[in-house]
Design a protein around this nucleic acid. Sequence first.
DNA 1: TATTATCATCGAAACGTTTCGATATTATTA
DNA 2: TAATAATATCGAAACGTTTCGATGATAATA
Lengths: 343, 343
Amino acid sequence: MGITIKDIAKIAGVSTSTVSLVISGKGYVSETTREKVQVVIDEYNYKPSRSAQQLVSQCSGNIGFIISDIHLSRSEAFYTRILLGAELEARNYNMYILLSTVGDKIDIPAGIPRFINSQDVDGLIIAGSVPVALVEYVHKLRIPTVLIDFKVSQTNMDAVLMDNRDGAQQIVKHLVDLNISKIGFVGGSYYHPSIKERFEGYQTAMVLHGLGAIAQNSDYHYLIEYETSPECGQRGLLKILEKIPDVEAVICVNDTTATGCLQYVESINKKVPEEIKIAGFDNVNFSAITHPPLTTVNVPKVQMGVEALKLLMDRINNGQQVHQTRLIPVELIVRGSTVKNGS
Amino acid sequence: MGITIKDIAKIAGVSTSTVSLVISGKGYVSETTREKVQVVIDEYNYKPSRSAQQLVSQCSGNIGFIISDIHLSRSEAFYTRILLGAELEARNYNMYILLSTVGDKIDIPAGIPRFINSQDVDGLIIAGSVPVALVEYVHKLRIPTVLIDFKVSQTNMDAVLMDNRDGAQQIVKHLVDLNISKIGFVGGSYYHPSIKERFEGYQTAMVLHGLGAIAQNSDYHYLIEYETSPECGQRGLLKILEKIPDVEAVICVNDTTATGCLQYVESINKKVPEEIKIAGFDNVNFSAITHPPLTTVNVPKVQMGVEALKLLMDRINNGQQVHQTRLIPVELIVRGSTVKNGS
DNA sequence: TATTATCATCGAAACGTTTCGATATTATTA
DNA sequence: TAATAATATCGAAACGTTTCGATGATAATA
């Protein structure tokens, strides 16, 4: 087939060991030899065989990327961009990403991604929530693993999370700066960790700005649905308006929910942002093209994938260190849905 | 490390060759030996080392999946589902999928997915449009390749396509059955192959139903934007309404564009479907939750990924046969946006 | 100058499979 | 019964790397 290290060695007039040393940059090689070999490598565009490397190094060179099929199929391309980031960074380590989806119910170990039991990955990235049993399983197997946007409380593992609390606080501050105080919160289930953090960030900030009464008043909150969705947003806003007809702003737990709110406001012929302001969270790809464009919190998705991969490679290469959590900063993006009245 | 074929052989009291034969199912092995070996394999949950297999077989066991980053990041999760289908089917062949995105401009060969020049894939799936130079490059390299939803006219290659013409014709027939004749067409660029086919399917069907005059009347058509988008739908419908105020229905080239039409109709206080009917194409995940829900053409995305992988494996294993195109049937899905007036 | 440390290169083993012959056994045919 | 064919098993080579230890050459030190 292709050209091998032996061919290169023969042509360059050195041993295969020397060629190997040149490629890896390890050991001692004289400058003249290094150049001589490199010229031949370049000329023949030689690339070492991965399988041979893997065989001798006992590493697969692969990273497994696990995500629930629900998350991946979501329209927001949220996790897709995280995957992209991981792939981007994987190039720097000459690793490949193997993608696998899992359902929300899986048999252990029959139903888990095949690369795990086949030992075809050196580490795992798990993005978003997956069955906890799966996480525990790979943890027990001592496979280096980094969780993204997901935390399993029992097990001590590396994780990359976004600063949900801070994001929510930034939104509240922004709204308060507009002289708004009647601020509601809509979306999903309080028991989802990210949602919980966002809600708590909202509460903290409200208290901080002297709006503790509202932060504690459940009439302002809608957190009873299992899944977030536009419909959830519609129902949530409807519910809040029943109790608080003069609510001035609603913070939605994510952009998807926020679009539902926007639609509902439009359906009752109210105006955003004049009569009510709506904010989302995530800055997914459609949030700039809603009507009006949505104020939201940007979550650097690609960067989260990058960080996760870095963290994982770090763990793979120097296994022993203490587990860490990287909190990725988020940033408020103000758009039309919360601009000041009359501006 | 793990358990090897030698260990299995020793425990079972046979040679490694015999174990190999049992696993692959090739050659002659007596039933008693086969069982004896299989028991040991199962007991120790032995899995052959991929790198060793790859090394000796000179196959990577990987399939490269290439997609433009624009397509992957799109909100509709269209290509994501195709990828999912490919991954699903890859399991049956014990292959892994390596994902790589490409930009719309790439240097050849510096910027191409690294698994190509590293020879880490046995074949390629290219989903959606990518730079033609890339396709020609891999074609020249004689890497087995299947295109999905993309066709490069110069080169003869395997392809999996959806039946765009038929889908458009089904929509027209459906609308004509509702006694509608003033049917417009909106979206994107005529020079995009899929869009062209859909438009031509529309024209063919119109002629077939005696509406050739409309099919030829460009006042009914908006096909001048490079990218499809909700805004494209809005602008398109606006443009058509200027010329044809009493247009009865608009077929959009995809669901994304159709949502823009829906929004525009709502903004001018017309009613869908009473005053104007809107149809999309693709059946992406949000098309059932628009207001009203969108009539569209379902494209079996997962199945397209499955078919592509099957076709590719066929080509890898029996390279010589003639190149083929698989046309995947599509199916009209009637929803609220085109139901009969008064029903 | 003799000894040791550093630098440079190489040969050979090892990684875990598959597969080609070789050999031995059994079944079939002439 | 002898010759051939089919079945069953195995040993060893091969796949293309990396790395350990050996060997020399050169530089630094005593």
